[in-house]
Amino acid sequence: MWKSLKKYWFIFWKFRAIRFMMLLEYRGNFWFWAFVSLMWTVFNFFFFDLIIGARNELAGWNKTEMYVLISTFTMLDAFTWSFFYHNMRDYIASIFNGQLTITLTRPINSQFLLSVQNNSYTNVVRFFVGLGILIVTLRNGQIPLTLAGVIGFALFFFISLLFVYTLWFIVATCSFWVDRLDNINELVPSTRRVWQVPKEVFTGFASTFFSVLLPLSLIASLPSEILLGRASFQWLAYYAVFTAVLFWLAHLFFTFSIRKYSGVAN
């Protein structure tokens, strides 16, 4: 077990190193895309600034709280683009072009290999911009920080990443079941609008849907609520359990879908 963990840990970082070497190959590209990602971050803050500007609050969250939420979202989003997007894109492409065969013949957990092979570093800047704004907002808003709050935030930040990853992995795995679907990889990131608003924005059925059935609205809301000291235990517990179950289902679905995999050529 320990040896196996060590192997996976080593391979995970080996991939990061490989990607870093590639980055050094294409430096120009890196700066360009880092700039584009930064531009979107600024644009996003500006967009919400305008909306909040109308009433100085949104669904019961004041401007400071909204900034905590949006910076949390920004940090999560940085992971979305640097990690999940690339791996899932490659995963889907490998299903359609048959390259998956190589992954499947390796003596290593295929799901692991498919999920960690790729990453880009262009959104690292974005992550730190988000973190910077979060710290400044907390300080300027005089929001008291506790150790438990920070640890809880980190934990639920991780759970949110796991939730996004799992959801994305399930969606990507659906590629086994369709002839071809080029934009399937855009599905999860396209729901980002839901993540970046307080869960209270949704009412009625939308609220049930986005908070309970498919808790996209909890992704950034819950970690932010922990920092702001307004999180409720029930929601946290529900979200954590939901994510764990979803993770397990994703694994089952993957194993099941591999059976369907027929390769492109025969």
Binding site: I51, A59, T191, R193, V194, V197, V201, T203, A206
Partner: peptide
């Protein structure tokens, strides 16, 4: 459509 509906939800809450 999803994005439109979400945008509408945001504006309704405004």
């Amino acid at each position: 459509l999803l994005n439109t509906v979400i945008l509408l939800a945001i504006w309704i809450s405004v």
